[in-house]
């Protein structure tokens, strides 16, 4: 397959609909996600961002673990790998080292990336492997019917926290930054156009880029926590529960209480792993 993706012919802002079909595997829709699941909104933002970068489909590889979110590669017409639970970043690391020309995107859930795959995640960040890690963060294990994940907020109900979680939740962005990721951002499915821009920036970054994407699982998290419908979840968690970095600069600490920041939260430069590896080979083979 040698199709080259041409840059978007019709700018989205001209109010013409975007044609997703060149990026999708024909005949795979409807996807398996439940009615209202945010994973599809995230996928659409990603496809628009990919188009904006002009990166050829053949130069992209999407790697995932196991979970509802990890089903994403099944729908996209890129090079794809659907691997083992928690191991997406490990497979992506191997793939990137074998084929450094590829732009590698990891699609992973909060359970996949933060629980069973926590170690792989932090070491990808530490090495500054060139890959874009998208954490579809719906605060729960969707695929296995709603167990608590490392990002389930305190007091929230899940199959394994029937009276409310008593564990503090991970802040994915803080973890990524501390572990060494050189691009760290947060977006939401509600802010789908802003997310498209953040994804574009993440795709253009060289090094480990992590985007924590607040997303919704109406089937389990929504139902357990008594949200009327998915729109209410998106309003309360993604819209009212976040502020952009720009808005936050103008708000008092009291107003920021309990809100998560959206946008690019950290950016730095340091040697990317494949470049370091090439330097090593050059030095040793001299």
């Amino acid at each position: 397959m040698t199709t080259q993706v041409t840059a978007r012919t019709v700018p989205y802002k001209e109010k013409k609909p975007f044609d997703y079909s060149p990026f999708l595997r024909k005949g795979k829709l409807p996807h398996i996600w439940c009615a209202g699941c945010g994973h599809g909104i995230v996928l659409k933002s990603l496809l628009r961002a990919v188009d904006a970068t002009g990166i050829a489909k053949d130069d992209l590889a999407m790697v995932s673990g196991i979970g509802c979110s990890s089903r994403t590669p099944g729908y996209v017409d890129f090079n794809t790998m659907h691997t083992l639970h928690g191991r997406a970043t490990a497979f992506a690391t191997g793939l990137k080292l074998a084929k450094p020309r590829l732009k590698v995107i990891v699609a992973t859930g909060d359970g996949d990336a933060m629980a069973i795959g926590g170690n792989h995640f932090i070491h990808a960040c530490r090495r500054n492997m060139d890959m874009l890690i998208l954490v579809y963060n719906n605060y729960i294990y969707g695929m296995t019917s709603g167990q608590a994940s490392p990002t389930t907020p305190e007091e929230k109900i899940s199959t394994t926290s029937r009276y409310g979680s008593i564990e503090p939740a991970f802040d994915i962005c803080e973890l990524a930054k501390t572990a060494g990721a050189t691009f760290v951002a947060r977006g939401t499915a509600y802010h789908a156009q802003e997310l498209e821009k953040t994804l574009y920036e993440g795709l253009m970054h060289r090094g480990t880029a992590v985007i924590d994407i607040l997303d919704s699982c109406p089937t389990y998290y929504g139902r357990f926590n008594k949200y009327k419908n998915v729109a209410e979840m998106m309003d309360k968690i993604e819209k009212d529960g976040t502020v952009s970095v720009a808005q936050a600069a103008k708000l008092s600490p009291e107003k920021l209480e309990g809100k998560q920041l959206r946008g690019i939260l950290h950016r730095s430069e340091r040697l990317e792993y494949c470049d370091g590896y090439k330097n090593l080979v050059d030095r040793v083979t001299g």
Binding site: P17, H39, K44
Partner: peptide, 19 residues
């Protein structure tokens, strides 16, 4: 009004608005 907000947030590739 052709704002496209429905398309942007549709998780299922199910709605599009054309001029």
């Amino acid at each position: 009004i052709g704002c496209q907000l429905c398309d942007i947030r549709c998780p299922d590739f199910a709605i599009q608005v054309f001029p």
